[in-house]
Design a protein around this nucleic acid. Structure first.
Lengths: 316, 316
DNA sequence: GCATCAGTATAACGGATCGTTATGAAATTC
DNA sequence: GAATTTCATAACGATCCGTTATACTGATGC
């Protein structure tokens, strides 16, 4: 005995509503269609599903049991419909994001939580990487979005990128660092303190080298390297060390009052923090929703960040 | 977005098996049918359900979620099919039985438990009544089976009845009753003890009257009446009272060693304990299964009951 | 890199059945 | 018992389903 699932759903609707007419209405069908289905079901099952001649239509125990299974299907069908609807408007689905570790930890993960306040059924899978890996991951459809600093002149060959922040770097230290006492710390002073090197592969590492070259320095004291953002911050908290960081990361930590930036301008490449998407492949609506959320989130922050930068670096 | 439930089931089958061909096979369909369904689904949903160009067919998150709902439906459909199968062979369903209180309590309820050892999914609804009520309940389709004593000449007008036991009555008392010490208690002795009257409406009550008439007695000491079987037995356990009971009820209590029957033959009508069914209306297979179980159950007991009767009443 | 192969998409077709409107029958309600 | 509601049946057009046959595409082998 194999059923057409729709028949069981119709049965369920009739049992639930207590009438053929109402059951049909519940499903948006005409009454004769449902009536015929019921007749057919009873014939096929070979057992009565309803007690005949009672107007508040009453199912037999078998009819009731079958209707329960029909209800399960009806519920599942409804859920499936809802799922598609919510997926279409970006209210459900999966967003796979990848980004550089510091940015993700400092700025993006918190945004994820905020995003899910309005999109609770969207799952976010986060992973880490630097630009080359991220680009490859995008093209291999392993992630939907990459959030990382890219050189502005870099061409994305099939990748769309939206700039969300200028990619300015600063020298970070703890707020009790002695260099902060000087009005105008000189680059040469930077060589007096131990340094934390950004993770290998990080653009920050290249930036650090450029920084050194701009001083004419050939060597600094690297005391620690390879840690995550939290590692670095905890190290900075405990020593008068220095490191190079995107300003926005320092900005994100401003409330903690543990680290800040030295009022020194350092060279920075023409780079911007951007969201990268594949331009060709179809993206789940939730992905676009999330990207838009991040973009506007940073837009709202932009002047705050700028003022913070001016205040910290320029002492305005 | 409304789905044809079968489409979601086909999707589920494909996701589950990892291939269109295998999914189709799982459902007993040809591959093109399922393939077309998937194309159609993707077009209707407007989002990809599978990652293109991967041979171990891999669903997108949306496809996977939809497939989960499809699996629910598939499971419900399978369960519904199983339900009908088990119903057809009497392995599931509801059996509504009605009967005289003493018989039900003493003999039938225990059989119900035994029956359900082999038919765990059959529910049994028991109710009490005497022949006129039971016949009415049968005809009104409130019960499926009635188990009660009926006069053999009674004609069941649309009711089929199967005799399961001779309807012999005995005088019951506790096993320490003084009358049991006499080899041949005389009817007149019965008047010396207090009596428990069977419930009003019970055929036993009529039998008790007939018994009195046969003694020429006009009055006995009725001390208690209206109780259930357990009431009566507990009363008997606590006093040297007497009552009239079907022998089979005493038989059923033999293991308890609390009550027995006096070795006195008393008049009994041409009556038998029988199972009554409506002959016209369709019965659920489980009903027939149960009726047959009861019938053969008593058939197996028949000679045991007969020997018990002879031993107790005739002292053989 | 090309050939082979398994699995998938597409096409065409016959038929089942679905949903509709129209109408009759049955039961409930007043 | 008449009116009304609800259910069953009939007829019909159209959709969609499942089938076979066939072309296509990605995987696998050397």
């Amino acid at each position: 005995m194999k059923f057409d699932e729709r028949h069981l759903i119709q049965l369920a609707a009739v049992v639930k509503t207590g009438g053929v007419t109402e059951g049909a209405a519940l499903l948006g069908l005409a009454q004769p269609a449902v009536s015929r289905t019921l007749s057919m079901l009873e014939k096929r099952v070979g057992e009565p599903l309803f007690i005949k001649g009672r107007r508040p239509l009453q199912p037999t125990p078998l009819g009731l049991s079958l209707a329960e299974h029909g209800l399960v299907m009806l519920a599942a069908s409804r859920k499936a419909s809802d799922l598609v609807e919510s997926f279409r408007v970006g209210k459900s689905g999966v967003v796979r994001i990848g980004g550089t570790p510091f940015f993700m930890d400092a700025l993006i993960t918190g945004l994820c939580a905020e995003f899910q306040a309005s999109h609770p059924d969207v799952r976010i899978d986060q992973s880490y990487g630097y630009f080359p890996d991220l680009r490859a991951a995008l093209k291999a459809d392993q992630i939907d979005l990459a959030i990382c600093p890219i050189d502005i002149l870099d061409e994305g060959s099939g990748l769309e990128f939206q700039q969300i922040l200028p990619g300015r770097n600063v020298v970070a230290c703890r707020i009790t660092h002695p260099l902060l006492l000087k009005r105008r710390p000189q680059p040469s002073h930077l060589l007096d303190y131990p340094w934390i090197a950004p993770p290998p592969g990080s653009p920050l590492l290249a930036d650090l080298r450029a920084l050194l070259l701009s001083f004419g320095a050939t060597e600094i004291k690297i005391r620690f390297s390879g840690g995550s953002l939290m590692s670095v911050i905890n190290y900075l908290k405990a020593a008068d060390a220095l490191t190079i960081m995107p300003h926005s990361v320092v900005f994100a930590q401003r409330k903690e009052k543990t680290i800040t930036a030295l009022p020194i301008t350092i060279p920075h490449p023409e780079r911007a923090l951007a969201i990268l998407k594949r331009i060709d492949a179809p993206r789940a609506p939730a992905v676009d929703q999330f990207a838009e959320f991040v973009r506007t989130g940073f837009q709202d922050l932009r002047h705050l960040i700028k003022r913070h930068e001016e205040a910290v670096i320029w002492g305005i």
